[in-house]
């Protein structure tokens, strides 16, 4: 399913999107596969499948830990593409790959795009690939109708924001705070104002990630954005083996996002 179609479908139902990140291969690749299926049943709208990397500079302690352990299990793009191949038959919501650039670069950009297409991947998020360097991958993915998700954040200059928005597709990944991934008690005060003004100019849906772990945060964000992304919060519960609690939380977030939205 195309990301765009998912957002349109949700919009018609008056809902906002719940996007969940899973480090592929943590604690093992079978878990990732089965849990993705569970997530769809729980009402998650999209899944980001994290490709582990040895040097995840944008990630906090939780995802550093899951990346490292997944690598020790031998997870690589090859095993992740077989996972995607299996998911293609098992889930109908869009799934994306989230990676750092080097594993993709070594796989070969064209090869990577082709494999993504064949295994049903809808979008790609690369943590360390800003707009300026994204041309080759974007072009290659475009051939197959796969979105390269663009990041924006409050430090993005107006000049760059315009350029990035113009070329954006799928959704905008809005980084809520200055920092690495990981749950925060409080999100920056300016976030809602920033989102409000972004929504006025963006033709692409906006999803907010980094730091989100409470229903109250979701409740605020959904007023001004089209979705929330949860990663570290989810992986922390998985690390602590609190799967049932996690599902309950996700259901409450889902309900929060279903409610009337402005």
């Amino acid at each position: 399913m195309r990301i765009n179609d998912k957002f349109n479908e949700l919009k018609k139902q008056g809902k906002k999107s719940l996007i969940v990140y899973l480090t592929a291969g943590f604690p093992d690749i079978m878990f990732t596969e089965n849990f993705a299926v569970e997530l769809e049943k729980t009402g998650v709208d999209m899944i980001e499948i994290g490709v582990p990397f040895s040097d995840p500079i944008a990630d906090g302690p939780i995802l550093q830990h899951t990346n490292q352990l997944s690598l020790e299990k031998g997870t690589n793009l090859k095993s992740i593409f077989s996972l995607c191949e299996r998911l293609k038959a098992r889930i109908s919501i869009p799934y994306l790959l989230m990676s750092y650039y080097n594993p993709v670069y070594q796989f070969g950009i064209d090869n990577f795009a082709k494999e993504c297409f064949q295994t049903g991947v809808s979008g790609i998020i690369i943590a360390d690939l800003p707009f300026e360097e994204s041309g080759p991958l974007k072009d290659s993915l475009k051939t197959y109708g796969i979105d390269l998700i663009s990041f924006l954040t409050f430090t993005t200059s107006e000049r760059r924001k315009e350029k990035i928005l113009k070329k954006s597709s799928g959704f905008i990944y809005y980084i809520s705070l200055a920092g690495v991934t990981g749950p925060r008690e409080q999100l920056p005060e300016r976030l809602m104002d920033d989102l409000k003004s972004l929504k006025e100019i963006s033709h692409t849906p906006v999803a907010v990630g980094f730091g989100i772990s409470y229903a109250a945060q979701v409740k605020e964000i959904k007023k001004y954005a089209d979705g929330v992304i949860m990663g570290s919060f989810v992986m922390k519960e998985i690390i602590d083996n609190k799967i049932e609690e996690l599902k309950k939380s996700l259901i409450s977030f889902r309900e929060e996002l279903n409610g009337e939205s402005k």
Binding site: D128, P130, E132, F151, T153, T155, T156, I175, A178, G179
Partner: peptide, 14 residues
């Protein structure tokens, strides 16, 4: 070379 950095750092680098 180039600038393969997370979006948050693009502005500080500029």
């Amino acid at each position: 070379g180039g600038k393969f950095a997370p979006e948050t750092l693009m502005s500080p680098l500029e």
